[in-house]
């Protein structure tokens, strides 16, 4: 009796999952569809399949510039966050006595708070210091935002390593730097790589902080937002589809890397 009611619940949840999946993907599929199919005032012209908009994309200089800026911002902010997250995680693990809770709170805060708070606080901070807005300020904003992700992954990996690893290294006369370079780094590398890809996708799509810090610089999401106010062309749908494919590829890489780890924890 109760087994069948459980099966009933599972079937209902399955239908719900299918329906929600359709709703979640509808925006994406429709956008991708419009990039290859002509939409006119009278409706959708299914015969008008064409990849022409993908070609036109490469002639739009403002979009190419925005893509380049976004890639630069993401690469810089992820690199900064990697260095900082390793330093913080090592500090917390080795010297954690002073201020561990404080550091963790500060690291997680920009990730947990609404992005608008991070954005406007950095905006006012930079304005007070007389620093003009641009690519560098976006990089800082993104760095503090993605730091939490990298820190979490690096710290988890660091804590999973046996203490005997460091002890053996120290007993053999290695300095801390040598231990870091030859013992820890090979162990941390894959966690850092996973975190870096994850952080990259977050930074690549980040909009709500960038809006406050961009000044004259334009990242891709900001460019898209500006274009949406005047209306979209199929060209944008083409771009968006490419961006989606790119981020899906990154997400799949992350999930393939994360899965075995999760199983190991069991």
């Amino acid at each position: 009796m109760s087994l069948s009611s459980e099966r009933l619940a599972a079937t209902a949840a399955g239908f719900l999952a299918a329906a929600v999946l359709a709703v979640l993907y509808a925006p994406v599929v429709i956008g991708a569809l419009f990039s290859v199919i002509e939409v006119t005032r009278n409706g959708i012209n299914w015969g008008g399949f064409s990849l022409a908009w993908y070609g036109k994309l490469w002639q739009n200089q403002s979009i190419l510039d925005a893509v380049r800026t976004t890639l630069i911002v993401s690469a810089c902010s992820v690199s900064l966050a990697i260095v900082l997250s390793i330093a913080l995680a090592l500090y917390v693990e080795w010297e954690g006595a002073i201020g561990r809770r404080l550091i963790e709170l500060v690291v997680y805060l920009p990730f947990l708070l609404p992005p608008i708070v991070t954005g406007l606080s950095l905006l006012i901070f930079f304005a007070n210091l007389g620093i003009s807005r641009g690519v560098a300020t976006i990089v800082i904003g993104h760095s503090v935002f993605v730091l939490a992700v990298l820190y979490r992954l690096v710290l988890t990996r660091l804590q999973s390593l046996p203490a005997t690893l460091f002890e053996a290294s120290a007993d053999l006369g290695a300095t801390r730097w040598q231990t870091l370079r030859h013992v820890l780094w090979p162990q941390l590398r894959s966690a850092v790589a996973t975190g870096a890809i994850l952080a990259f996708t977050l930074s690549f799509d980040e909009t709500l902080i960038s809006v406050f810090l961009a000044g004259d610089a334009t990242t891709l999401p900001l460019r898209l937002w500006a274009m949406m106010r005047v209306g979209f062309t199929p060209e944008i749908n083409a771009l968006v589809t490419l961006v989606l494919l790119f981020s899906i590829a990154l997400a799949i890489i992350v999930s393939l890397r994360m899965k075995p780890e999760g199983e190991m924890e069991e």
Partner: peptide
């Protein structure tokens, strides 16, 4: 994990674009 990936993937899709397509829907 395949199902989980399907449900989590939309997180990695452009936020601005999702809003825009929701508007057109």
């Amino acid at each position: 994990y395949l199902l989980l990936l399907l449900f989590v993937l939309p997180l990695f899709m452009s936020y601005i674009v999702k809003i825009y397509t929701m508007r057109s829907i």
